[in-house]
Design a protein around this nucleic acid. Sequence first.
DNA 1: ATCATTTATGCAAACGTGTGCATAAAAAGG
DNA 2: CCTTTTTATGCACACGTTTGCATAAATGAT
Lengths: 331, 331
Amino acid sequence: MKVSIKDIAKSAGVSHSTVSRALADSPLIAERTRARIHRLAQKRGYTPNAIARGLVTQHTRALGVVVTSIADPFVAEVVRGIEEIAADNGYRVFLGTSHDEPAREVNLVKALREWRVDGVIVASSRVGALYQPHLKEIGAPIVLINNQGQAGARAIHSIAMDDSAGGELATRYLIEQGHRVIAYLGGPADRASHRDRLNGYKRALRVAKIAFDPARVQTGNGKVEAGERVGELLARAKPTAIFCYNDITAIGALHALKQRGVRVPQDISLVGYDDILLASYVDPPLTTIHQPKDEMGRTAMRMLLDLLNGDQVANVRVTGKLIVRESTTTL
Amino acid sequence: MKVSIKDIAKSAGVSHSTVSRALADSPLIAERTRARIHRLAQKRGYTPNAIARGLVTQHTRALGVVVTSIADPFVAEVVRGIEEIAADNGYRVFLGTSHDEPAREVNLVKALREWRVDGVIVASSRVGALYQPHLKEIGAPIVLINNQGQAGARAIHSIAMDDSAGGELATRYLIEQGHRVIAYLGGPADRASHRDRLNGYKRALRVAKIAFDPARVQTGNGKVEAGERVGELLARAKPTAIFCYNDITAIGALHALKQRGVRVPQDISLVGYDDILLASYVDPPLTTIHQPKDEMGRTAMRMLLDLLNGDQVANVRVTGKLIVRESTTTL
DNA sequence: ATCATTTATGCAAACGTGTGCATAAAAAGG
DNA sequence: CCTTTTTATGCACACGTTTGCATAAATGAT
């Protein structure tokens, strides 16, 4: 049986309110008794009960963090950033993974409501149709990371990568290296990040007055297989450079190209996206767009803290940085 | 303001106890009122307050999961497994990361006590000297994953990789491929997993009647840099094969070898450990020891469930599987 | 119709804290 | 020394549930 505030009150011969105040270092309590009670609590190994405290104070100092899959390295980095700042500010993190399964999603939201979390951060690649309405019912501030939500969803705070800018950055770099026939080996057609990166790609072409050719674009699933299907794109578009939806896709492409004897970057330049750990260790190391993952987590958490503090916060849009490695060369 | 059990009691014209029982589908309540109350609760958007419930029932259905770093792909997979089973059984997971920093560790343990979690899973590469005694104070069942705890620490449940068997497995394989001069590019000297893998390495040599030569062993930090220092080992021991502490180290070695024109596996064979995702996508893909990461997480969680259920549980020891890829060849 | 059961509901205490208000004790002011 | 102010403590209620026990209503048995 855990020792409670009443137990130590009895030992000290005071009321439990005095103990409560003493432990909270309230100025109402005489220094002598305060010290005495602290010592006693220490000796008895007293630990305050966050449950009981939460019940009366009406806040829990607990946060919900919901992600699709913690096994995704991108997500893991983000969560790392969140947890770091949360811990530093005395908040606890409830982790929930949805795996994009509706059943798990509703379960998760229910749990967060039941626990009366003070705030929520969602780092879900897809904030489902089902999800969004449920979310606001939680009745706590919410920060979305990289949400795919339509712009219409206001009153919800978010921090997002500027995928459009990233796509443009990557493409412009290739153009500056002298490339003119640049292909885009994209991701899932229904994903906003894919569409935005594609838009950036188009914009860069437009600026450079290069005509956009749909034959130079191919969609994929964002996994290795998508990259391994680079052959079709090659045959159709005969590009000198390929901008890939993400590093994983680029690595798949690298694999396929190597097998058919196409050298990277001598024969073809390759640009990825995300800058996952892997990117610097494949051969050749990938030129890519770096996403500041843990920094995004930290920023999201800081936004949430401001929100909890009642402050106004502006949505944040971060731009990726181009990391030039050895998978690209001048033409 | 959230709607409470009393609010809907008032609407229904019954006492709050009746509502409580009705919502819990107690047989004490007449079917008619039960249904009526359920409808009402639904309409008013009632969500039970887990805090209040926890206070009276004395259990929270919340678990603490403490890890060193969620950004470690190994850990992430384990956590994924834990979370999956936990969620399926109606348990919530508090995630805490220690980063091997004592200050964070004590903070974490304190938080877990305060929250009165029902159980704890620790997947920390190092369960510090500081840590262990604090842990038992939590007063909840604990399952350790891959704990470095000395065997003396009984009454604590654990699931662990048999690192010794894994080290032997890897080394034996290299021997079977005809290698005789095999080096071990190890991890941190104070880590049990390092020592165990080293022991396995030695045992395999002994069985094959190959003399153990300390010059063929080098410690590292388990990160890429450790692998990049493979040059020293090469110069000193001139091995035909290297068994690496983990895949990350192996990848670093791969890099360094490539830079100095040493071909893998033609000139030297390389074996990793862990089978992280990365392992199959580097060039050449790594031969390695596969650790069933998410399965370990699931098993740990099931052990904890048994413990919570008052059942007796036996410690588990799992053995890794050898995955042969292209970084090794016969001599 | 009367009493004994069964069934359905309400009462009240408990979980461990925080906190406004009352009050006792001590200090200050005259 | 008496009143006023300050200082330190206790009382009691609240937070939202669950649950043992009492009780009222309904049913059944005779």
